[in-house]
């Protein structure tokens, strides 16, 4: 899709976002946007504020300042339930799974299927869970065990399945493949491409610059709580993005010496 001719408001616009913890400005005047069917890669070093920015969008930790617009409408997202009502689903960096219950209970946590008399329909939930997780990770077999006894990658599969099952319009993926093996990572890449083609907007946080270049349309770079800039993937090299991440310099500001020092 071409950005220039698009007159529609973006799917998500987070403007001048601010979040602080005590005296620490974890997110400081950051503006990012996301269009339908687009993947925006959110990159930056450890502690740059990526997760904090996204947690403001998913209602996990409301922002101290700034405005959020969805389809051009200003919205307030005070808690996770509000975010879900706007079609925002999140795969948290910490996965946010209840360790003591099984995959199906986690997948439907807060949105349980019930029978006519209002009792939990565990069989229906397990059936749906088997379908979704089976697509992501065909080797997944431990549907009856508490997720605490699953491997890191299996747990991640559960978290991903949960985020994609509920017809999200906006998907936040905070390092979704950090614990996955090569085959499962490939599945998730395919999944991201498919969701994108379905018109879902995706914020993708990743430390794997090649992953980001493969999947993202645009890349927003953060450093020390501030936005360095947002670039179109086609217009930059990986080295230029690395320079943004590490030195906070835009491609227009960066010198050959800077780029060389990245590999020095």
């Amino acid at each position: 899709m071409s950005m220039e001719t698009n007159q529609q408001p973006p799917l998500v616009l987070m403007r001048d976002m601010r979040v602080s913890f005590g005296g620490v400005h974890a997110v400081n005047d950051v503006t990012v946007d996301l269009r339908a069917g687009e993947v925006v890669g959110l990159v930056g070093g450890n502690g740059a504020g990526k997760s904090t920015l996204m947690r403001a969008l998913s209602g996990a930790h409301p922002a101290d300042g700034g405005q959020i617009f969805i389809n051009g409408q200003p919205v307030i997202i005070p808690n996770p339930r509000a975010a879900k009502d706007y079609g925002i689903e999140t795969i948290y960096q910490t996965l946010a799974l209840a360790d003591n219950v099984d995959a199906a209970a986690n997948m439907f946590l807060g949105r349980e299927l019930t029978t006519r008399v209002g009792s939990l329909d565990d069989a229906a939930m397990e059936s749906a869970t088997r379908k979704v997780i089976g697509r992501l990770n065909p080797n997944f077999k431990n549907f009856k065990t508490p997720v605490v006894s699953l491997s890191g990658g299996q747990r991640q599969s559960v978290a991903i399945a949960r985020a994609v099952h509920f017809n999200a319009k906006i998907l936040i993926m905070d390092e979704p493949t950090a614990a996955l093996g090569p085959a499962e990572t490939a599945q998730v890449r395919d999944l991201i491409k498919q969701l994108k083609s379905e018109g879902i907007g995706i914020f993708l946080i990743s430390h794997d610059i090649h992953d980001v270049f493969d999947l993202a349309d645009r890349i927003s770079v953060m450093l020390h709580g501030k936005l360095v800039g947002t670039v179109n993937k086609q217009e930059v090299t990986t080295d230029e993005v690395l320079a943004m991440i590490i030195m906070g310099k835009l491609p227009t500001e960066v010198t050959q010496r800077d780029l060389a020092s990245l590999h020095g």
């Binding site: 998913s58 996990a60 808690n79 996770p80 339930r81 879900k84 999140t90 948290y92 910490t94 996965l95 946010a96 799974l97 209840a98 986690n106 946590l109 807060g110 949105r111």
Partner: peptide
């Protein structure tokens, strides 16, 4: 925390 984030 997970319970809270799940919207419970």
């Amino acid at each position: 925390e997970a319970a809270e984030l799940a919207g419970i």
